[in-house]
Design a protein around this nucleic acid. Structure first.
Lengths: 194, 194
DNA sequence: CGCCGAGTTGAACTGAATCAAGAAACGTGG
DNA sequence: CCACGTTTCTTGATTCAGTTCAACTCGGCG
């Protein structure tokens, strides 16, 4: 099986015994997406959470002017999904696309809830995922409200240094909420400073 | 008891029988805060979720220049908390303050998890709260990244028309991530248009 | 009365967007 | 392995949305 990262992700997050873990993992399908291809497109209903075993995904929205706005990147060990679409059963406003050839493991939404009813550990695990997500979103809002483009870029570099090399710069700009040109200038500015 | 809104909030969100509901509500303490007073201050650990029975709260952070940034308002039927602080047991970065005399009902963090283990309905309820929170945060990020100050203000007006009258304008500006002067100009602009 | 916080307005300034053009890097097919 | 087109990144000139600072108004409240 091709789920090394998932099993170690799970064991480091919940204190679960091997049998339970096996039974969970065995219930998950895997999906491979080639670079450029999509796991989800705007208008579709999102049915899964995607755990990235290997590769890199991005989640983004298109605005009315056709401009992309990147909500998040998901390298190895990350989970992406449109919770709004999955949970409220609505068409998604987002695309989830592979930036590299990517192996993912799919969680059925009902699976975790189902497991939670059997074993409270899964409940706490799910809770932890949701709280982490909220923490990350909240942090991003605070930055968007109060920090300059330069500060946001520095924060990004600090948090996701590995992504700098794997993600095209204009997409990082999009994540930060600025244009590619602006990010280029921010970087130039930073280079002369140091 | 002074929990009319809480009970109707709960019954409209989970399909729970009266006995269970009574037992839950009876386990919650209430707290009254006068206008201007605080339920949480920066550096303290947040121990509860606060359900607003009557009144109005705001949650905000101070940046290094002493500027306030409002994360959210909470009128009747809203729940506020710093999940990051409660869940990860960290000192909070936020203040929660009463903008009006406010009656709140306190949820112990452990309570919901505890109830969830007894009755899966509580689990789903908690899940719903978390997903709603995520939805709201995500929406806000999208707006901050892609919309102008005017668009964000219009969105605010549409979503929270009642708050317009209850919240000082400079605080709405803070919520939108702009200055009080800018909001004043946005409003002037909108007035001449229509 | 006088004070104080909230809101408005103006003028100058600034961070970032836009538009346009060129340079570098990249992948693909021949 | 090179040649080509495409995408990415950079740079410059200009514009624009929003900030900053300062002055003034208004309404409430001691």
């Amino acid at each position: 099986m091709n789920n090394f990262r998932l099993t170690s992700f799970l064991t480091s997050n919940i204190d679960i015994d091997k049998n339970n873990l096996e039974s969970m993992v065995s219930q998950c399908k895997t999906k491979f997406v080639k670079k450029g291809e999509y796991l989800l497109k705007e208008g579709e209903k999102c049915k899964h959470s995607f755990f990235v075993e290997h590769g890199l995904l991005r989640q983004y929205a298109l605005d009315d002017k056709g401009k992309e706005h990147i909500l998040q990147f998901a390298p190895e060990n990350w989970i992406v999904t449109d919770r709004e679409s999955v949970y409220f059963d609505q068409p998604s406003a987002y695309y989830i696309q592979a930036l590299e050839n990517t192996n993912t493991i799919l969680f059925e939404e009902s699976l975790i809830l189902h497991l939670s009813k059997q074993d409270p550990l899964f409940l706490e695990f799910n809770n932890k995922l949701l709280h982490n997500h909220i923490r990350q979103l909240q942090r991003r809002i605070t930055l968007l409200i109060s920090a300059t483009a330069e500060e946001r870029y520095l924060d990004f570099v600090r948090l996701y240094p590995d992504l700098l090399l794997r993600v095209p710069q204009w997409q990082i700009a999009s994540y930060l909420g600025i244009t590619a040109e602006s990010l280029s200038r921010v970087r130039k500015e930073l280079a002369t400073k140091s």
